[in-house]
Design a binder for these strands. Structure first.
Length: 430
RNA sequence: GCCGGGGUGGGGUAGUUGGUUAUCCUACGGGACUGUGGAUCCCGCGACUCGGGUUCGAAUCUCGGCCCCGGCCCCA
């Protein structure tokens, strides 16, 4: 029987896991620096949680099943909806704003390719009950802070506001359904397809030109002025633009000004309302987006009281890919600092006692458990990368001593048996 | 769901105009060496992705499945 890993899943071995854990810990630390608290939601949820907001079409990509009680359940394909659900179930009456973060795996039934797996991890946060654009600015600053801390370079943070284009479309009387299709097309970034669909919906030439110009708007602060001339007279669009401008100002106060204003960012889903942001790292193939975020009204959609909420999430696997691509590695700690080697089976109990004493003092220690010859033990200790080996042998024990060997320098000294732990505590970084 | 490229011991490979016991390196287990690693030598372990077809004979040709890599679609 040859059982294979399910398609689109991965096993993580020691080195990779260590790297992932360190990146995870770094991000957690920063999230907590901003006052976010961790939550954990179930791996599976009621299927309806994911279908009610985005329609049945989403079913194609969801791992769903019926349990033995006939309930329709789904492995979560993302974490924003579960967090919104958690908020409604547990936290509606808590003092606002509420800052939550999560780290967990999600599942989508899709064709695996570079940067896309069927089980993947998201690390993100949600800020509920804050205010635009202050909350959004803080979240974007937080995400930039994370990437800077990790040492990632050449990332681009794109920021847009869906209210601008929505405002234009509303005033032109384009129906909600058509708007959603237009937004979905903008999201794809295909200008030709956008033209085609605008043609199909018979929007007038002037409006068409305005839209095409707007989605192509990309740049720094100067974009604001250009856009304001284009949408002059449209109150709701101008209001959204004003909000975007304010956001940029706040973001700069938070210490991040290397953003790219990009009105071509959209969302296929209609519960995203105002600010949206995405982070790209080039050189990752088709999946260059490592993060996505924005302001949404999911909570209302689920029947909660109206409350502003915004969030973002890193595609953790893609972030790891980006770091790897740039040659950024986290410091690798030793598997063990000390290896205790009984020279003969007669002294193995003493070896175990010594090992345990070191461990109780916080020193990463391994000890031979398989009764190998000294030569093999040293070889094994070497392959583990142990810095020190304690050779426990009858000859030394008779004098109350143990040999301490430095595997890197190749030197060794005799240490009084009751001094060994104290000696190694000094040598090994805790 | 679609298109292209792949799949030989744990890792990396040779072999693919069909033909003896599938090559080499490395890793791993043991020994040479009963108190000294990263050196050498010896021994051992271990593979043709799966199934059907063609054939006297298939790792090799052919069809299909599975899986991997890249792209399309999609991307909450």
């Amino acid at each position: 029987m040859d059982i294979q890993r399910p398609r689109g899943t991965r096993d993580f071995l020691f080195h990779e896991m260590s790297q992932r854990k360190q990146v995870e810990n770094t991000l957690r630390r920063i999230f907590e620096t901003y006052g976010y608290q961790e939550i954990k939601t179930p791996l599976f949820e009621d299927l309806a949680l994911f279908t009610m907001k985005s329609g049945e079409g989403i079913m194609e990509q969801i791992y769903h099943f019926q349990d033995k009680g006939g309930r329709d359940l789904a492995l979560r394909p993302e974490l924003t909806a579960p967090v919104a659900r958690l908020y409604i179930n547990e936290l509606q009456k808590k003092s606002k704003p509420i800052k939550m973060y999560y780290f967990g795996s999600c599942f989508r039934y899709e064709r695996p390719q570079a940067g896309r797996w069927r089980q993947f991890w998201q690390l993100g946060c949600e800020l509920i009950g804050g205010r635009s654009p202050e909350s959004e600015a803080e979240i974007i600053a937080l995400s930039a802070h994370c990437l800077e801390e990790l040492g990632l370079e050449d990332f681009e943070i794109h920021i847009g506001n869906l209210g601008i284009i929505r405002g234009i479309l509303n005033e032109a009387g384009v129906s909600r359904g058509e708007q959603d299709q237009i937004m979905a097309t903008i999201d794809k970034g295909d200008v030709k397809e956008l033209k085609d669909i605008l043609e199909t919906f018979r929007v007038d030439q002037n409006l068409k030109d305005v839209l095409i110009t707007l989605v192509g708007m990309k740049g720094h602060r100067e974009v604001i002025d250009k856009v304001s001339r284009i949408i002059d007279g449209n109150e709701s669009a101008l209001k959204a633009l004003k909000e975007l401008e304010e956001l940029l100002g706040i973001l700069e106060a938070f210490g991040f000004s290397n953003y790219i204003v990009n009105l071509g960012i959209a969302r296929g889903l209609d519960y995203y309302s105002g600010t949206v942001s995405e982070i790209y790292v080039h050189g990752l193939g088709a999946q260059k987006q490592i993060s996505g975020g924005g302001t949404y009204n999911l909570i209302e959609l689920f029947g909660g009281e109206t409350v502003e909420s915004t969030g973002f999430a890193f595609g953790f696997d893609r972030l790891m890919e980006a770091l790897k691509k740039q040659g950024i590695t986290m410091p690798q700690s030793r598997t063990v600092d000390v290896f205790v080697a009984p020279i003969s089976q007669e002294v193995k109990l003493q070896a175990f006692e010594i090992a345990q004493d070191l461990r109780k003092n916080g020193i990463k220690t391994d000890v031979d458990l398989v009764g190998r010859k000294l030569k093999r033990i040293l070889s094994h200790a070497d392959s583990l990368g142990a810095r020190y080996v304690l050779l426990v042998g009858e000859r030394d024990l008779k004098e109350g001593k143990i040999t301490l060997k430095d595997m890197e320098l190749g030197e060794q000294i005799l240490v009084e048996i009751d001094q060994v732990t104290a000696h190694l505590i000094k040598l090994c970084p805790q």
